[in-house]
Design a protein around this nucleic acid. Structure first.
Length: 460
RNA sequence: GGCCCGGUGGCAGAGUGGUGAUGCAGGGGACUGCAAAUCCCCGCACGUCGGUUCGAUUCCGGCCCGGGCCUCCA
């Protein structure tokens, strides 16, 4: 069994991963707030932790891993967006959730084991808040319930900052009902027309952080293995989750914290507030393959910043072309049994070193191209496919990759022209043969003559 | 101001105390009617100044540059 090492943000160092229960490895990742289409910055953690999920399933067994990723469907931004659109909140959150699923599906992300919605867990959140109030870690004030940061001596362990600093650097106005400037909201009153639930503190809605504490405890237990998310969630979101959970439950909460780096554009962080983002949908509509987007996201190690641009998409597309070419050329070879190249698994097990894993995947593709003899080809093909599967790549039919979703009539016409050209070539009528090839090229169809005949693909 | 990350060949991007990343682009060759694809070969890089060391891109310290967080954010 491979030893997995991960960089634990709690310790700021790479540690050997030891699951609490190898028969049920538990992973929680912060999911989207469903008010708007996902941009590729949102897609990065999805793809990164999907790859971790695949690795964990490979190492511990597909049935031995529970992956929870929440949907935040109650939030100020949702209320604002719904108001601006003149759309009922339920419609907005349902529509956005569906779009999120479609976009992440296009990136070949597996579905998490469980995808809890905040609005389905209000009772759990209220119960957790009650317990925090009862133990003196929270207090009610003016219809709000606030977490008392001074009540938690361990507060700040994840983000490595102390309270004085936070207060000194605070850039928000301190609400008058706070006992301490660092205190944060667990529950807030709902205005008329806003979503709200009855609670011991009146009609209201939960604060942002409490949902993850409540839902992870419910679906994974009060102590679980890995909690993941973007670096920008370290503070305050994850810091506050830790405070709520360890003060409000008996468990120690997540044992390993993993945080992915930002996506950047021209060196600057991509974010909705800066407006310098592309949505996944825009990229797909522009003709980029979801698989190519995924490959770009895997091309840098997850903790590093990643500059996302068209050159990288083109690069990734070319790389996939090469690997799918190897698979296409061995379409008649039956795949042998066997797993991914050990070096590829080792690379992933080393804190998800996806660039190294990809280098191993390219090596596997190269090996398949060079393999001679049925057995060697079958083994090489197995390694390439299994390696691809571990990374969430190369899972489609090569013909589909190259030909896209064209209609049958067009495909038949192309085949007819290829036959015509083959005949011309037999007759040494190269002028006709080249004209057919050039005409098709002008239509974006590229022909390749091989020993087994001529194949075609769509230019990207 | 406090706290975090980074600075690797034309580009992207791993890694390492002393020989190899890998991909793209580029050059040469094989194959091909010509291409394409594929295969073979090639450039030998680590911000800066010191320190440790037989030896540092890799460890330590200073400096310069870039990015991020400090309660909207993946």
């Amino acid at each position: 069994m491979s030893t997995i090492r991960i960089t634990n943000t709690l310790a700021r160092e790479k540690q050997v991963f030891e699951p609490i229960d190898p028969a049920n490895v538990r992973l929680y990742v912060c999911g989207p707030t469903v008010y708007d289409r996902a941009h590729i910055g949102n897609a990065r953690p999805v793809v990164v932790f999907d790859t971790l999920f695949r690795l964990l399933r490979h190492v511990y067994g597909a049935g031995q891993v529970t992956y929870a990723r929440n949907i935040t469907d109650v939030d100020d931004k949702i209320i604002t967006a719904a108001r601006e659109n003149g759309e009922p909140i339920d419609d907005l959150t349902r529509r956005t959730t569906e779009a999120f699923h479609a976009d992440m599906g296009a990136l070949n992300a597996l579905k998490p084991s469980v995808e809890p919605c905040a609005t389905q867990h209000i009772d759990d959140m209220i119960a957790l808040i009650q317990r925090l109030v009862a133990t003196g870690h929270a207090y009610a004030a003016e219809g709000h319930v606030l977490f008392s940061v001074p009540s938690d001596p361990a507060y700040g362990q994840l983000s490595r900052r102390d309270r004085e600093e936070m207060i000194a650097g605070a850039r928000v106005e301190v609400a008058p009902y706070k006992q301490d400037p660092a205190d944060f909201v667990l529950w807030k009153p709902a205005a008329d027309g806003e979503p709200g639930w009855d609670s011991p503190w009146g009609r209201g809605r939960p604060g942002w952080h409490i949902e993850c504490s409540a839902m992870s405890a419910k679906h994974l237990g009060e102590t679980f293995d890995i909690h993941g998310g973007g670096q920008d969630l370290i503070f305050p979101h994850h810091e506050n989750e830790i405070a709520q959970s360890h003060c409000g439950t008996d468990g120690q909460f997540a044992r390993y914290w993993m945080h992915n780096g930002y996506l950047v554009v021209h060196g600057e962080k991509m974010s909705k507030s800066l407006g310098n983002f592309f949505t996944v949908k825009e990229l797909l509509d522009a003709g980029w393959a979801g698989e190519a987007i995924r490959l770009v996201l895997l091309s840098a190690q997850y903790r590093q910043p990643l500059d996302f641009n068209r050159d990288k998409l083109a690069d990734a597309t070319a790389n996939l072309d090469r690997l799918y070419t190897a698979l296409r050329n061995t379409a008649d070879v039956e795949t042998a049994d066997g797993g991914p190249p050990p070096a590829l698994t080792d690379a992933l097990a080393d804190d998800l070193n996806t660039p190294e894993a990809l280098a191993q995947l390219y090596e596997a593709g190269h090996a398949l191209n060079k393999a001679t003899g049925a057995d060697a080809k079958a083994r090489a093909k197995a390694e390439l496919q299994a390696g691809g599967r571990l990374l969430g790549l190369l899972e489609q039919d090569p013909e589909a990759w190259f030909k896209g979703a064209g209609d049958d009539a067009e495909a038949a016409e192309i085949e007819r022209l290829i036959a015509e050209r083959t005949q011309a070539r037999r007759n040494k009528d190269f002028a006709t043969a080249d004209k057919i090839r050039d005409d098709l090229k002008a239509r974006g169809i590229v022909l390749e003559d091989g020993p087994e005949g001529t194949t075609w693909k769509r230019e990207r």
